[in-house]
Computed example of a mutant assay.
Amino acid sequence: MTYLLVLYRVVTILVVFLLVALVLSKRHLGRFTIFDFIAAVTLGAVAGADISDVDKPHGPRIFALIAIGAIHILFTKMLLKNRKLGKLLTFDPTMIIQNGKIVVKNMEKVRYTLDDLLSHLREQGAFDISEVEFAILEPNGQLSVLKKSQHLPATPGDLKIPTQYKGLSIPLVLEGKAKHEGLRAINLTEEWLVNQLAGQGVTDVQEVFLALLNTQGQLYVAKYQDPSNIQKLDH
């Protein structure tokens, strides 16, 4: 009976967590502020106590989880409306590299190590630190990097080359199923799709894992692959 009770509590807590996560915006799932971190730790502590101590009532702790989520949402709205309050409760961006020079004082201030810096630079595609003009440690712990102008890739605009409009590709087949709403959106029929797939050697839509039509009218088709043809990678 105890195991069933624990299982019941785990399921209900997961459902509550899912609802809270759906209510929170993508910003909170991708970027943690100080208050986000505190709320997450508190939620975990309440949930852990509820699961481990089955002798205590379940209802008040579920209420506590919902209350924490509601307070978090309310507090976040307050931060959005009051910039001064937000600045008090979040970290400021920190300049780590300025005009190509490492600001050691700022690194020591935020306890940001040289290994951290080099690792985060590589994540941003900057393998040569001499190519970096500015690097800013953001409040969420990510490093924003601006390379020196001579190391930035040239764009068509820089070269004064005219380009065609490029918008979002429209999915026409997903996991072996034709997306009729996508076809209707661009005034195409399933017969047109079948003919286009046949031109790429596809006899059945179910053979296609993904098919996308871009704004240039080009159809990208990815078939389901035979596992025996997949290349194995060595360590």
Rank of each mutant, 00 (worst) to 15 (best):
M1I: 09
T2W: 04
I13V: 15
L14W: 04
V16W: 01
F17K: 06
L24I: 06
L24M: 14
R27Q: 07
L29K: 08
R31Y: 04
F37A: 12
G44F: 06
D50F: 01
K56L: 13
P57S: 14
G59H: 06
I62S: 08
F63K: 14
I71K: 05
H72N: 14
H72Y: 11
L74Y: 14
T76E: 09
M78Y: 12
M78R: 10
L80I: 15
L80S: 15
N82E: 13
R83F: 06
G86V: 05
K87G: 08
L88D: 07
L89N: 04
T90F: 03
I97H: 02
I102G: 12
M107L: 07
K109T: 11
K109C: 03
V110Q: 11
R111P: 00
R111E: 08
Y112I: 09
S119M: 11
L121G: 03
E123H: 05
E123A: 11
I129F: 01
I129C: 03
E131M: 06
A135V: 03
L137Q: 03
P139V: 06
Q142K: 14
K147N: 10
Q150I: 14
P153G: 08
A154L: 14
D158A: 13
L159N: 10
L159W: 03
Y165N: 13
G167W: 02
L174P: 00
G176M: 02
A178F: 00
K179Y: 00
L188E: 07
V194G: 01
L197D: 02
A198N: 11
A198M: 05
V202K: 05
T203D: 09
D204V: 02
Q206M: 06
A211F: 01
L212S: 04
N214C: 05
K223A: 07
S228P: 00
N229L: 11
K232N: 08
